[in-house]
Design a binder for these strands. Structure first.
Length: 263
DNA sequence: CTAGATGTTAAGGT
DNA sequence: CACCTTAACATCTA
């Protein structure tokens, strides 16, 4: 679930469900997911406070508490939010459970526990602490060029590097490169200004389109790679068989015809 | 039973 | 230093 578009959709979900309600109870179900706070500190900060706004930076979601400070959530590979009324027995993957005065609950669910929960003074603190680059939806072309220009190696590695630009993960890196017609393994040094401009535009477009589609692959444009991203998958543009390889240690799908080698 | 999965980081090698 | 690959984290599914 959780790359930039997924986190943005979660942010809007939280915004639509969980603001301005007094927090009555906080249960830390998996204390090992807490980063820079203890369960006790987190409970103390949250209980009797209310969320009054949310922000996102890259794959991090932040919610401001009206008594100061921000709750920070990272979803790892399997995290999401669930706002619901009735608490049932079997919710094995709830890691943090927040209960509001109106009787509803907000659960931070994370099966694989690769994410994390913490507190931050403000967004700047989080960005500095995690050494994050600018958010992929906010970065402008000039800065994008500067950042990418100081990297070497495969272009996909640069897109995945949260310290360079924050928000893009394995799935959307492949989608962006497919839309830009660039091979994921392409050496950054071999890309010209036109390639980089196309990449920048497609990065914005793909991320925004995914958000607008509520990250539901069925709503994605038919020209998108994502639904075909599996063995036996075929290119939505030329119908040729996709290639599968590893880049930056991550499984990578691309169309060898529509994403020509820069050799 | 095994391999692999949307993330991040540490460790070792080139 | 900068890059690459691998393993590890905890858990489930094909």
């Amino acid at each position: 679930m959780p790359e930039l578009p997924d986190v943005e959709v979660s942010r809007r979900y939280m915004e639509a469900t969980s603001l301005h309600q007094t927090i009555k109870e906080v249960e830390v179900k998996s204390p090992n997911m807490l980063g820079n706070v203890t369960a006790q500190q987190l409970r103390q900060r949250l209980i009797d406070s209310r969320f009054d706004s949310t922000r996102r930076h890259g794959k991090h979601l932040l919610a401001r508490l009206d008594q100061g400070r921000w709750l920070t959530l990272h979803f790892g590979m399997t995290g999401y939010l669930d706002y619901f009324r009735h608490l049932t027995e079997e919710r094995p993957h709830d890691r943090l459970l927040i209960s509001f005065a109106n009787g509803f609950h907000l659960a931070y669910v994370c099966q694989r526990m690769l994410g994390g929960v913490g507190l931050a003074e403000d967004i700047r603190e989080l960005v500095t602490e995690r050494n994050l680059g600018p958010d992929a939806l906010e970065v402008d072309f000039r800065v994008f060029l500067e950042l990418v220009g100081e990297k070497r190696g495969a272009i996909k590695s640069a897109l995945l590097d949260q310290h360079l630009i924050a928000g893009i993960g394995n799935i959307y890196a492949d989608e962006i490169l497919f839309q830009a017609g660039l091979r994921p393994q392409a050496d950054i040094d071999r890309l010209d200004g036109e390639d980089l401009e196309e990449l920048f535009k497609r990065m914005k477009q793909v991320l925004q389109t995914a958000i607008d589609s509520k990250v539901d692959p069925e709503r994605f444009p038919h020209s998108y790679l994502l639904p075909y991203r599996d063995k036996e998958g075929r290119c939505p543009r030329c119908a040729g068989k996709l290639d599968r390889t590893k880049v930056s240690g991550r499984t990578t799908y691309y169309c060898p015809r529509c994403q020509p080698s820069t050799e």
